[in-house]
Amino acid sequence: MRLIVAEDETLLREGLVLVLERAGFEVVGTAADAVDLVELAERERPDVVVTDIRMPPGRADDGLTAAIRIRRTVPGAGVVVLSQFVQRRYALELIGTNPSGVGYLLKERIGEVRRFVDDVEQVGSGGTVLDPDVVRVMMDRAAHKHGDLERLTPRQREVLELIAQGRTNAAIAARLGIAEKSVVQHASRIYDDLGLEANSVDHRRVMAVIRFLSR
């Protein structure tokens, strides 16, 4: 997979490149600011862009703005943004109406090397990866806002949370130590209880759940 890494801290950028190259990615370019990142991505058309949110020139949410633009101008390129903060709003802005090829992770997740590499791979293949902490904020908010989640059993809530994180049925089964068939059953019960349209296409079901949680 062809990859671009954008991070303004030199040591961190080099560290990221090293980790990703060791995992077999081909890093075709690096950028230290958001302007360079957009230019590079539009020229190189990589499979995935991994970028910090807080970057020059504005040192605010420049990396996010760049990622949103790249999603528009380089179709098929996945974006993984690394955030210092748990920002539900930023994740939603990044997803827009299509969670396919989107990753939103807290920055420290890069230390869980194996999982991070898997996440980048998943986003590069059109999947979705939302940080568990961000999904937790979404779940808590939904629970405060409307009572619908109370209709779910604790197990169903766990499954819903993992679906919102972008996990596949197989990954959810492995994570919860249950059979994939059980995950499918849980999922269909959840859709029924919450009045969601059942959908087997991964990014559509992620979108449906995120829409539900963001009501």
Partner: peptide, 19 residues
């Protein structure tokens, strides 16, 4: 944020790579 957090993230990455 700028000074401390990025240091810690880098250290996390190093510990993760080491592991």
């Amino acid at each position: 944020h700028d000074l401390l957090q990025s240091r810690l993230v880098l250290a996390t990455l190093r510990a993760g790579t080491l592991g």
